[in-house]
Computed example of a mutant assay.
Amino acid sequence: MTDRWIELDGLVNMRDLGGLPTRDGGSTTPGRLIRSDNLQDLSEADVSRLVDELGVSDVVDLRTGAELHIEGPGPLRRVEALTHHHHSLIDERRSSETVEDLGERALPWRDDDPVRDAGFWAAHYLGYLAKRPEAVAAALEVVAEARGAVVVHCAAGKDRTGTVVAMALDVAGVPHDEIVADYVLTAERIDRIIARLAPRESYGAALAKQKPEDQLPRAESIEAILAAVRDGWGGADGWLRAHGWSEADVERLRTRLTT
Rank of each mutant, 00 (worst) to 15 (best):
G31W: 07
Y203Q: 08
A155K: 01
D182S: 12
R196I: 04
A139N: 06
M1W: 14
T64L: 03
A219I: 13
Y203M: 11
A118Y: 01
P75D: 06
S221A: 14
R132W: 10
E251D: 15
A236K: 01
L207E: 02
L20C: 05
A155H: 02
F120R: 03
A181K: 05
I179F: 09
L39K: 03
E97L: 15
R230A: 11
R63I: 06
S36L: 11
L17E: 11
L20Y: 13
V151Y: 01
L226K: 02
D46I: 02
R15W: 13
E67Q: 11
L129V: 13
D182W: 03
I70E: 01
A156K: 08
L11F: 08
R160Y: 15
T2N: 08
R94K: 05
A45D: 15
G65C: 05
F120K: 00
M14W: 10
W121N: 00
V180Y: 07
D177V: 08
L240M: 14
M167W: 03
D113Y: 12
P114L: 09
N13P: 00
G10H: 01
R160S: 13
T161Y: 09
L33P: 00
K209P: 03
W121Q: 09
L54H: 02
R132I: 05
L126V: 02
V142H: 11
R160F: 14
D16I: 14
D52R: 12
G55L: 08
E92D: 15
S88P: 14
V59H: 07
R23K: 08
G238V: 08
A181L: 04
H86G: 07
D111I: 01
I6Y: 03
L107A: 09
R200K: 14
H86F: 05
A205M: 10
T255E: 15
E44D: 13
V136N: 02
A118H: 03
R254E: 15
R218N: 15
I34L: 10
A168H: 00
E213N: 13
G119F: 09
V79L: 03
D37L: 09
D170W: 04
Y183I: 11
L76C: 08
H69L: 15
G10Q: 01
R23V: 12
